[in-house]
Computed example of a mutant assay.
Amino acid sequence: MKKFLAGLSIALVPFAGHAQDGDGAFVDTKILKPELALEMAVAAMEDCRQQGYQVGVAVVDRYGGLQAFIRDRFAGPHVEEIAPRKAWTAVSFRTDTLALDRETQPGTMSAGIRDSARALALGGGVPVVSGDGALVAGIGVSGAPGPDLDDACARAGIAAIEAEIAF
C-alpha cells in the first residue's frame, strides 16, 4: 500500500500546480446571489411587459444551474423550456445567443453546436459579467415576438442590477 501511495503521489506531482489561478488547489469563483438573480429576472420581465410582451425569464449561475425563473401570466407554455436553455447556452459558450445564432449558421465552422441537445442558438440569452470581468450568471428571455426583443429585455434585466455587480 505504501508503494502504491508513493507512486500515486509521484504521478500527481506534475498536476499539483495546475489550478486555474496558478495558486494552490482551489479556484475562487463568483456566483450571483439568488436575490439579485430574481431581481434581474423580474426587471427583464417588466421591461418586456411595458412593451406589451408576455415572457418567461430564467437566470442560471455561472455553471448553468437554474437560480431563478419567472413567467408572466399570459406567456406561452414554451417559455418554461426555452428561457432556461437560452441562459444555459449564454454561460456555456460565454456569448450572447444572438451572436451565437450568426456564428453557427449552416456551413459555418461552428454549425455543429446546433446539434447539441441543450444549446439553443436563438437570441435572448446573455451572459452576466461582473465589473472585473468574471462570468457570474446568464439570463434567458423567451416569449417576445422576436429574438432581438428577447435580447433587449434580457439586457434591461442586467442593467437593473448593474450597479450591484460593477465592483
Rank of each mutant, 00 (worst) to 15 (best):
R71E: 05
Q50A: 13
T104H: 05
F4L: 14
D96M: 03
F74M: 08
G65E: 10
G64K: 00
V79I: 08
F93S: 04
W88G: 08
D101F: 12
A119F: 14
K33Y: 02
L100W: 15
E46V: 01
M40D: 03
D47A: 14
G124L: 06
T97G: 05
G124E: 07
C48P: 03
D72T: 02
C48V: 01
M40S: 02
D28T: 15
K2C: 03
Q50F: 03
G123S: 06
R62Q: 12
P84K: 00
P147C: 06
E39G: 00
S116Y: 11
G56P: 00
D132E: 10
P106W: 10
F69K: 06
A58I: 05
A111P: 02
Y53N: 09
R85N: 04
H18T: 13
M40V: 02
A11R: 04
A144S: 13
Y63C: 06
V136M: 07
F69V: 07
E81K: 06
S130D: 15
L12P: 00
D47C: 09
I139W: 00
G125I: 04
S116F: 09
V136S: 01
V136W: 04
E46P: 01
R155L: 11
Y53C: 07
I158S: 07
A25M: 13
G64E: 05
M1E: 11
P34L: 07
D47S: 14
M1W: 13
Q105D: 02
K86E: 04
K2L: 13
V141E: 06
K33P: 01
L8H: 07
A144K: 03
K2E: 10
S9L: 12
T97I: 10
V79T: 14
T89P: 03
I10R: 11
V136I: 14
A25S: 09
